[in-house]
Amino acid sequence: MSADQLVTTEREVTAPAVVRKRRSLARPVLNVFMIVIGLVFLLPLLWLILASFNPTADGTLAMPHPFSLLNYHLVIRAGAGAAIRNSLYLAGVSTVIATAVSTMAGFMLARRKIRFKGLVLVLILFLTGLPITLLLIPTYQIFVHLNWLNSKFYTSLVLASMSVPFSIWLLKNFIGQVPGEFEEAAAIEGASEISILFRIVIPLIIPGILVAAILTFINSWGSFLIPLVLDANPSDTPGAVGIYQFMSANGQVQFGQLAAYSVLFSVPVIILYLISSRWLSGGFSFAGGVKG
């Protein structure tokens, strides 16, 4: 059983018997209540999965008969695969860039004396709260001047910068928890900064780097507004924009195919979340793991 229940049994010596009795009577009711909430939350998820296997799906929760992979087949032929590859590019490139530059900055901010460091850190924290809605129009305007519009790479650069403030904070704190003695010893032996980072610091903070990378990847993967505005090239359309265009296309909404598309688009993120929640301890047990 869970830890808090162990604590309860331990403390029962001091708790009055009446209270214990009332609690045990209330439990079944609370369990039922919890399960009802869970079922309500489950309905939309269940619909999504069932509809994706149902070629004649509509907005109603219904069992497909028979289960069919036709939706998946059709939606991949209609370009879902290419769109998901574009999402992979945007999320992959932005994750590599954001994680690399944040690790370097986090290392220096954790280890070196830097003038106005406190102020810089507060400014970076403040940047995490700035909405993209404010940055969108000026960024668009800058991209017009630099001729950077309709480029997957520059769009990924913007996505990377969105994750940098949070990643720097996360990695700075991770590196700050690693004792500096190894690095000092290596420096005495004459190791360069780069070899210290790669041979000593990075192996010690791999969980932190993975968490930063996965959070960046999840955010970039789901991003919609930035690629919608900055990259109008139809062959660069990522999955999120692709689903939107499919939804708002003229004619009958293809619920089944869209459900299949959404499932294909969501699975990578769910897998990554499961991996990262291991690193963040706890995971699916309410235990923590705050998405950035």
Partner: peptide, 15 residues
């Protein structure tokens, strides 16, 4: 429900 991409959530509730 929280981990799903926003566009998926939008589509499910739209339907």
């Amino acid at each position: 429900a929280w981990v799903l991409p926003e566009i998926t959530v939008a589509f499910v509730w739209y339907s």
